[in-house]
Design a protein around this nucleic acid. Structure first.
Lengths: 343, 343
DNA sequence: CATTAAAATGCAAACGTTTGTATGTTTTAT
DNA sequence: ATAAAACATACAAACGTTTGCATTTTAATG
C-alpha cells in the first residue's frame, strides 16, 4: 500500500537531468532556463512530488519553524496570542510548535532543553509564573537562536520583548473613572511580584495623584491570582466598609465580573452607585450585565508582533542590534459598567 | 559568538571511539558495555551535547511530531482540546505543530498539502465548517501517515475518530428537563448540515417521544452558527409566543446564556418559569447568573484521547486495523438554571 | 593452550537535499 | 571564423545521524 515517496532523484532520472538542476528549477534559480523549469514543474506536478522538508532543513539548517512556550494554551489571552502568531507565521511560510509550561519552572526548563535540538529557528516565550531567573534561556543567545518574550518577560537580562504599557493603561482606566465623577476609587490588584500588576497599581495611583484625589490604601485590595473567587472575596470586603467606593479599577476582567455580580446581588447599582473598569477585554466582558468597561490588551496583535519581530531576527541577523523592546498601544473600551447605555 | 554545535563526531574524537558507538551508547543499546556508556554520557554532559533532532529525523524518517489542524485556536473548546493533545504528546516525547484552517476549506487544503512534506508523523484534525468532502486528506492514508479526527469528523470515508455521543447527551439533557417537570420544551438548534447538531436535535426529539411529550415544531428554532446574537433573536421569538416554553435545551452555551439574559430582562424567572440547559460547559456557564446547567463535553479528554489514539497508530501499525472510532462519555452538570440552589 | 562463542566496537553506507565549482554549450562581438 | 562572454547543466561533497555487517577483543570451553 504505502507507496514510496517521490524524490528529486526520481524526477532527475525521469527527465534525464541532474538532481541539482531539478532542485534549482523548483527553486526558480536564475541559472536554469525557462524551458527546463516548465518541464520540471510539470513533471513534479505529474508525479506528485513534495520536497522532503526534513532533508531540506538538515541541509540548510533552517527549519522554518518557530517554537512557542506558554503557561497554558487554554487561557483565552494566550490562545489569542498564539492565534496571532500562527496567523503571521503561516503567511510567512513558518509553522509553529507549541509547548505548555503549565506555569512550572521545572517543565519550562525541560522544554528549553528540548528546544536546543535544532527543531526551531526561533522561540516566542511567555514566562511561567514561577520563573524569576532566566538562565535556562541564555543558551539560545549563544546558539544564535532568536527569542521574543511577551507579557511576562525577563528582568534579569536583555531580551526582545513585546509588552503593553500597563502603567499607562491603568492610568487611562483610572482617569476614565475620575472623569465619570468618581472620587473614592478602589483597586483590586494582582500579585506585586509580577511586574505587570505592579505597573497597573502604579498607574492607578498616578492617575489619582494627577487629579489630586486621595489614595485610600484600604480600598486597594491584594489578590494572588486575580481569580474569580478572589474577586468575590474582595467584593464582600468592599461591602463591609461603612462607605462604598464609587469606582473600582480591577486588574483583570475576572475580578471585575465577580465584583459586578456580588454588588448587584446586594442591590448596589452599577454604574450609578459604583462604576467598574476591568482589564484585558475577555469575552465575558461583552456578555456580563452590565457590559464591562475594560482595557483591550490586543492579545492577537501581540502575537502578530511577536512573530513579526522574531522572524525579522531570524532572517536578517543584524549584528548591531542586541535586543528590541516593543510596547503596543492598548485602548479603553467603554461599556455599561461605567456609563449608562442610551439604548 | 555563535559557537559551533557539538556533534557525535566531536564526542567520538574526544573519546577515541567511533560515532556509531557513541550513538548506541546514548541510546542505551545492549551491545555497548556499561563502562563505555558511563564514559560517553559523562562526556556528553560535559560538552553539552544535544543530538541534532533534524539529522535524526532525516535518518530515521520519524519526527516525533504531530500536526494539528483546527478551525481556530482561540475558541475555548479547541484550545482545551489542544491543551489535552499537547499534554499527552509531551509526556510521550512528541511535540505538536498547530495550524488554523480559519474555517476555510481552501486553507485547510493548503495545510494538508504542506503537511505532506514529512514534517509530522501523524495528524489530528477538526474539519473546517466548509468541508464536506475529504479528498485532500486521503493522500495521508497512502503515505502511511495516521490521522485522527475529532468533533467535526468526515462522513465520506472511514477514519479514526474521537467524538462524543451527541444524540445521547442531548437525550440526557432533555430528559433532565422533563424530570424537572417541564412539559413544553423548546430547542435552539445548530446548523442541520453539521452532524453533531443534527444528532443533538434527534436526541432532543427522542427524549420527548420516550416520555410521550408533544414535539412543538414551532419551539424548535434554527440558527446558523449558534452565536450569542442569534441566541438573542431566538429568545425574543420565544417571548412573542402566547405561551412561553417551560424548558429550553440549547445546542450550545452561548445561545443558552443569551436566552437567560433576554428572559431575565423581561422578568421571566429562571428556572421557575423556564428552565434552561446548555451544551459544552464553557467557562461562562459557571459565571452567568443563574449558573447554567450544561453538558460537559470533556474537551481536554478529547484531546488526550486523540493524541493517545494517534500515537498508538503511529507506533504500532496494526495492518489489520483499518480505522477506530471512539465515543467519549459526557456528563450533565446540574446548576441553577434548572434547579434552585439550596444556598 | 587452542578453539569457539560471546561481547564490544568499528566501518561504511545511506537518508534527500543544497550549493560551490567544473564542464559543456550557445551566443555575441571582433 | 575565432575568441570571449554568457548561459545552462552536471558533478560531487556535505549536513549528522543510524544501522547492518564486519572486525576485533574478551571470555569460556574442551
Amino acid at each position: 500500500m504505502k507507496n514510496r515517496r517521490i524524490t528529486l532523484k526520481d524526477l532527475a532520472k525521469d527527465l534525464n537531468l541532474s538532481a541539482s538542476t531539478i532542485s534549482r528549477a523548483l527553486d526558480n534559480h536564475p541559472a536554469i532556463s525557462d524551458a527546463t523549469k516548465k518541464k520540471v514543474q510539470r513533471k513534479a506536478e505529474e508525479l506528485g512530488f513534495i520536497p522532503n522538508s526534513i532533508a531540506s532543513s538538515f541541509r540548510t539548517k533552517k527549519t522554518k519553524s518557530i517554537g512557542i512556550i506558554v503557561p497554558r494554551i487554554d487561557i483565552h489571552f494566550h490562545s489569542l496570542v498564539i492565534s496571532g502568531i500562527e496567523d503571521f507565521a503561516y503567511k510567512n511560510g513558518y509553522n509553529v510548535t507549541i509547548f505548555q509550561s503549565k506555569d512550572s519552572l521545572k517543565r519550562e526548563k525541560e522544554i528549553a532543553k528540548i528546544l536546543q535540538n535544532r527543531m526551531v529557528d526561533g522561540i516566542i516565550i511567555c514566562l511561567s509564573i514561577e520563573t524569576e531567573k532566566c538562565d535556562h534561556f541564555k543558551k539560545f543567545d549563544k546558539l544564535g537562536v532568536p527569542m521574543v518574550f511577551y507579557d511576562r518577560v525577563p528582568t534579569d537580562f536583555d531580551a526582545n520583548k513585546i509588552v503593553i504599557n500597563d502603567f499607562e493603561s491603568a492610568f487611562t482606566a483610572t482617569e476614565h473613572l475620575i472623569k465619570k465623577g468618581c472620587k473614592r476609587i478602589g483597586h483590586i490588584a494582582g500579585s506585586q511580584k509580577t511586574d505587570i500588576f505592579k505597573a497597573r497599581l502604579e498607574g492607578f495611583k498616578a492617575a489619582l495623584q494627577k487629579y489630586k484625589l486621595p489614595i485610600h490604601q484600604d480600598l486597594i485590595l491584594q489578590t494572588k491570582h486575580l481569580g474569580y473567587e478572589e474577586g468575590v472575596i474582595c467584593a464582600k470586603k468592599y461591602l463591609e466598609f461603612s462607605e462604598l467606593p464609587d469606582g473600582i479599577f480591577c486588574a483583570n476582567d475576572y475580578t471585575a465580573v465577580s465584583v459586578i455580580q456580588v454588588f448587584r446581588k446586594h442591590g448596589v447599582k452599577i454604574p450609578q452607585d459604583v462604576a467598574i473598569v476591568g482589564f484585558s477585554n475577555y469575552p465575558i466582558s461583552k456578555i456580563i450585565e452590565p457590559n464591562l468597561t475594560t482595557i483591550n490588551d490586543c492579545a492577537f496583535q501581540m502575537g502578530e508582533s511577536s512573530a513579526k519581530l522574531l522572524i525579522r531576527h531570524i532572517e536578517d541577523k543584524d549584528e548591531f542590534i542586541n535586543s528590541e523592546s516593543i510596547t503596543l498601544r492598548t485602548n479603553l473600551i467603554i461599556r455599561e459598567s461605567t456609563q449608562l447605555s442610551n439604548a
